[in-house]
Write a protein that binds this DNA or RNA. Structure first.
Lengths: 176, 176
DNA sequence: TGCGTTGTCATACGGGTGGATAATTCGTGC
DNA sequence: GCACGAATTATCCACCCGTATGACAACGCA
């Protein structure tokens, strides 16, 4: 009479959280927020729905954790590209821009993710805060590179150029 | 005992359809597709839910009509900008690009719309077809303007430049 | 002014699904 | 082996979705 129970392995808290977060991001990227239900996330992560609330107080918290993770990935990718860049200021900027337009930064999945999360960002203040933090750190990176260029330009001008440059990058990023 | 019935006015078929479509677009822009429920659309349009199915066979049909309308708006705006443009090829291109980056083409609502509809576009083939038609007509417009420039460039080059130019425009558009 | 058409309202239904929970089981480290 | 807690299972409840239906009233026309 014993119903056969699904076999399972115990995992570390970190690996489980990671799997759940990744599953959530994948689902949002593919089908928008409405596709990222607790059941779908659990299935994708290879666990049962109940487990989600073992690691996250609510689905909302999981969503926020997922977005935090996404921002971190983007930030890390940018920073890594910069570390491997050449020494000349001009070349540094050029290679940084190039890196921002090639894999793994550019990825169709990321576009879907961004689009899917846009509405959520607008409504949830905490999400918005996470987002702005990441956005500013990227733009500041860009501004630093531009300020290091061998040319005559005040900080005001550099800031303005950084914003414009960022705009162009985002545009090319969209087209991929 | 008679429940007081909400007073109403009879409208033309066109104006009702228009109101429903606009309501649907607004809701998608604000809260994503999941916010555009039959009830919400009806409320926003100032009617009761039942009326939707008086004008559209199903909600899906309304959604498609709404998207068709959006594409038409974008196309019209582009064409209008071009009609008012100067004669010189270089100036024409410049003013067209400028128009693509100012109101009413640029609009935070449109960005939300685009983000919300991205997933829908991916899954619904008919939607995708509507989308590509609009996208191509815009890019062809751009390609025509570029081909008219006073310079030495083959058709292949013009096409390539049009795609790149479109990418940059989209990027600036995103930043608004 | 009265009548018929039909645009519009009101309400209900059947159901799918969403997030949450509580108790149970069994893998695992000691 | 024993105990702890990770993970499963089963279920809850509520909400909201899209659809269907029938009554009512606004407007055009005679």
């Amino acid at each position: 009479m014993s119903t056969d129970r699904r076999p399972y392995r115990r995992e570390t808290e970190e690996s489980r959280r990671e799997a759940l977060i990744e599953a959530a991001l994948d689902l949002v990227a593919e089908g928008g927020p409405q596709a990222a239900t607790v059941r779908a996330i659990a299935t994708r992560a290879g666990v049962t729905p109940g487990l989600i609330r073992h690691y996250f107080a609510s689905k909302e918290e999981l969503t926020r954790a997922a977005y935090r993770r996404l921002v971190q990935i983007l930030t890390d990718d940018s920073a890594r590209a910069l570390r491997a860049a050449p020494a000349s200021p001009t070349d540094r900027l050029a290679s940084f821009v190039a890196a921002s337009l090639s894999p793994p930064v550019v990825d169709p999945m990321r576009l879907g993710l961004w689009a899917g999360l846009l509405n959520t960002l607008r409504s949830d203040p905490e999400m918005r805060q996470i987002h702005e933090q990441g956005y500013h750190s990227y733009r500041d990176l860009l501004e630093g590179l531009i300020a290091a260029l061998p040319r005559d330009a005040g900080p005001e001008q550099c800031r303005h150029d950084a914003i414009a440059c960022n705009a162009v990058i985002d545009g090319l990023w969209l087209e991929s």
